[in-house]
Design a protein around this nucleic acid. Structure first.
Lengths: 306, 306
DNA sequence: TAAAAATACTCCATAGGTATTTTAT
DNA sequence: ATAAAATACCTATGGAGTATTTTTA
């Protein structure tokens, strides 16, 4: 369908309304900051386009014709909507405003997003974060099909089509029941982490694979469906696991049954990064958001590695 | 107040909506019947003007940004109003349609306008005649200040600023009581019309002056406020007068008391003309209307003199 | 690698300016 | 006669075309 607007221009409508208002081509031209012939010519074209004389040229004043008046009323509506568009653009184009659909992996979200929400509300009060939790694959899909604008995940991941900005490094802790063989070791070494009572998250959680590779255990280990379940299983003496630092902080329930120990290798942990579609025009804003997360982070996490 | 539209163009909004719809610059360009680079460039300018990227360029498809969507919705409203304007223009620009404020002198209106209305409804069903009666001076004023679009008056008049199209010639009749000295004259001559019982309309009616000059009587004659009053005064035997042919036709009341006689001079009468502001752009339509009145006229009147 | 959008450039339509003529009162 | 709009004519902006490069998945 080709344009049916036939060269109609908002500027010409402004000219016409100025003439109607001033009842004088010269004054209307001055108000529109153009020369009188320029304005006259555009009015002439507009009248041709509409098929009707809008004005009756007479002395001492221009009069709008009856037909012209109906059209000028409608022209006013057109311009009102156009101004509405520009007003809207002025508001909407502010950076860090409006809805932002943000995802986070499930082993991070519950322990970090409350912190992030406080921070974002302080720094960017107009930014409306819409939060989602999921597993890495689901988040990546949601990102690719536009349900999400950005996501917090553990890197490395396959980054094709994505922009990635590391945000912080989150160490893992050894978590085991009091009295467990690992709870009493005076000096914990990485090789001690292998054991047949390692409890893992279900397939799909990136944390599962990271714990597995650090512990060098067999994958027939016991399964938990969430960090919370896992915590309760450990409290029940079912075994031990590795959990990210944010998820072990400030835990009251069953803290008397469980011991958390830092791992011996300071590199044992995961890097959390903010990702988004490389093509998203808000890239710069997302980078700024990541910068804020890097600078002002929870005490349990560390600066992201280069 | 200078333009606040800053170069916003309806065409660009159409381009943007085409892209949003097609999710593809190439197809959008084809739909708008321009080249892809031309459309891309206009979208780029529009995004700059609005201060926001409207689209996220990605494969396989273009996606509209959240901010862009709000703006595109508004753009759609702008275009809807613009199309409304063009639709309205198409209707409104038809000739012989819409309201037409027409005035007529009081000695003509009641006797001719019913005829004219029938005729106009048949020939121009979309023409909405709004009728007014008044004296010549009042009609001219109303015409000049725009309350009237056109008027039917007796010429000649001072025609500065006015266009005039004669419509028909209306003969005068001698009207007197049965038994009046003029009713019995076998051959009526113009000079017989002088008499001290001539009844005239009040000051302001053009017919008063025309009758006066034809009759060569003194202006201390009796006064009537309307043709109807005059008719009753004649029936009451108060005197005689000259009345235009249309006003004496088809009279039932008191017809048995009154005699109407044609005047000896075939030029004794008045020419009725349609007048309008010379500057009114509907001049051609008024002329066409006058043409209709010339061609299809009541039987009592004659073709207007050259 | 392939498809698609962005650049580079050239051209031309037209909005706009100045000077002047025409028109209306 | 005068004020104001229309016309004539010229300039320059910018929209649109073709050819090409860059980008993204």
């Amino acid at each position: 369908m080709v344009s049916t607007l036939a060269g109609l221009s908002l500027r010409d409508l402004e000219y016409a309304l100025a003439v109607a208002d001033e009842q004088h081509f010269g004054r209307a031209a001055a108000r529109c900051a153009v020369s009188q012939p320029a304005l006259s010519e555009q009015i002439r074209k507009l009248e041709g386009l509409l098929g009707t004389k809008l004005f009756e040229r007479g002395r001492p004043a221009i009069r709008t014709t009856a037909r012209g008046q109906a059209l000028l009323d409608q022209a006013e509506r057109v311009l009102a909507e156009a101004h509405g568009l520009l007003d809207m653009a002025r508001n909407v184009s502010e950076p860090q405003t409006g809805p932002l659909h943000l995802g986070a992996i499930q082993t991070l979200g519950p322990y970090y997003l409350p912190f992030l929400l406080r921070q974002s509300r302080a720094s960017f009060p107009e930014l409306a974060l819409r939060l989602t939790e999921g597993q890495t694959d689901g988040l990546l899909n949601a990102l690719r099909n536009g349900e999400l604008d950005a996501a917090l995940i553990a890197i490395p991941i396959d980054m094709d089509g994505l922009a990635i900005e590391p945000v912080f490094f989150e160490p893992f802790h050894l978590v085991c029941p009091i009295g467990h063989r690992l709870s009493g070791l005076p000096r914990l070494r990485l090789r001690d982490l292998a054991g047949d009572d390692l409890i893992l998250l279900e397939e799909g959680h990136c944390l599962r694979d990271q714990a597995l590779s650090l512990c060098q255990s067999a994958p027939q280990a016991r399964l938990a469906t969430s960090v919370e379940t896992l915590w309760h299983m450990i409290a029940a003496g079912e075994g031990y696991s590795l959990l990210p630092a944010l998820s072990t902080a400030n835990r009251a329930t069953m803290a008397d049954l469980i011991i958390c120990r830092p791992l011996p290798d300071p590199a044992a942990g995961r890097t959390i990064a903010l990702i988004w579609r490389r093509t998203d025009p808000r890239g710069a804003e997302f980078r700024q958001l990541a910068g804020m997360m890097q600078r002002d982070r929870p005490e349990q996490v560390q600066e992201a590695p280069g």
